[in-house]
Structure formats: structure tokens, C-alpha cells
């Protein structure tokens, strides 16, 4: 699995010719083939760590201070077939679209709503689900990715919130499978 943050993707919502500290946007590989290789950097953190800047110093506007933020962050295509991943899943949940969520950036704990999701039974997409959430921890859940398909696509325009600041961002990924994840919802 390879994860990239790329502010140079012209035409994507998180594009930054230069970040809000005057550094040009860059493409940084954060995870390469499952190995953590880099972080995003603003000027303050780069100086304190003796690292180069990466064009991730962003601010919502003149009322706010710059801090480390994503630009266009996406997971690159793998070599599995999306239909095959579903066909090889005896029981699971197919998430067609995620809704809003929250992440504790200190711990990595997250909760995201699913706005469009279906059961997978016997390798087939069956019953639609509603009012349910995905709950977990970011670093832990990344270790449960056991298949990544080749059908990469960028998603629609997004907004990322952090410490009260909203900035435009882009996200993208192919179909991927988690071996396990906590699902929350209301029983009926």
C-alpha cells in the first residue's frame, strides 16, 4: 500500500501552487509499500526536526496561523481486481460512500459515517445498510488492509477540519479491503 500527499495535482481541490508559508507544493510519499517513509511538514516542524519543508504549511485565512495540513492525499492503485475482491469476501460490508467523521489526531482514533453501504454475503453485494459508522484507529486499521484494487479514482472536492480551521483538500483511493473493522449503528 502506498500513500501520497500531492499539492501539485493541478485541477484537484487541494492543489497549492505555494503553501501559506511561501513554499511550493510538492508530492511526498508518506507510506511506500506499507512502510512509513515521511510526514507532512510546515516550517516550524521542519525546523525543529531538521527536515526539509514539504509545502504543507496551510491556513484557512488571515485570522489563522499556518500549521501542518494535507493537500491532495490519496492511496495509489494496487494489483487486485475490484470485482474479485468482492467475490472473494464471504461476509463483509461494501462501503460505496463515506460521510462525515472525526479523527483524534493525537491518538489516531476515528469514526466515519457510511452514507452508502451494503452487506456482502457469499461474495455478492446484497442488502443496503443505513445509519452505521466505521470506528477504529488509523495506524491500526492500515495494517488490516489485505487487498488493494487497480480502480483508482479521485473523490469529489472535500474540506478538512483541524483545530477549527477548514481548508480545501482532495482525496482518492482504489477499492480496498479491510480484514476487520468495528462497525457501529442502531439495531432495529
Amino acid at each position: 500500500m502506498t500513500l501520497v500527499d500531492d499539492g501539485t495535482e493541478a485541477g484537484e481541490w487541494g492543489y497549492v501552487a505555494v503553501d501559506d508559508e511561501g513554499h511550493r507544493g510538492t508530492r511526498a510519499t508518506l507510506i511506500e509499500n506499507g512502510v512509513l517513509t515521511d510526514y507532512m511538514w510546515d516550517y516550524l516542524r521542519a525546523r525543529s526536526a531538521g527536515h526539509g519543508r514539504s509545502g504543507n504549511g496551510r491556513r484557512q485565512g488571515y485570522q489563522y496561523l499556518p500549521m501542518v495540513r494535507m493537500t491532495n492525499t490519496f492511496l495509489l492503485a494496487g494489483d487486485s481486481d475490484a470485482d474479485e475482491i468482492v467475490a472473494q469476501t464471504p461476509y463483509g460490508i461494501y462501503v460505496a460512500q463515506l460521510g462525515g467523521g472525526q479523527v483524534n489526531t493525537a491518538t489516531g482514533d476515528f469514526v466515519f459515517g457510511m452514507t452508502s453501504a451494503f452487506l456482502i454475503e457469499g461474495g455478492r453485494i446484497t442488502t443496503p445498510l443505513r445509519d452505521c459508522n466505521l470506528i477504529g484507529n488509523g495506524p491500526a486499521i492500515l495494517q488490516r488492509v489485505d487487498a488493494v484494487a487497480g480502480d483508482f479514482a479521485m473523490g469529489g472536492p472535500g474540506t478538512c477540519g483541524k483545530d477549527g480551521q477548514q481548508v480545501p483538500v482532495g482525496t482518492g483511493q482504489p477499492t480496498l479491503r479491510l480484514s476487520a473493522v468495528t462497525v457501529g449503528g442502531t439495531a432495529s
Partner: peptide, 16 residues
């Protein structure tokens, strides 16, 4: 000790 203002890096402003 790490607080500072970013300095221009010589890259020309992009025409967007």
C-alpha cells in the same frame, strides 16, 4: 528556538 518566518525560496509565483 524554532520559531521563524518562512523566507522566499526564489521560486517564481505561479500564474494560475
Amino acid at each position: 528556538e524554532f520559531l521563524a518566518f518562512a523566507r522566499p525560496d526564489g521560486v517564481a509565483a505561479a500564474s494560475l
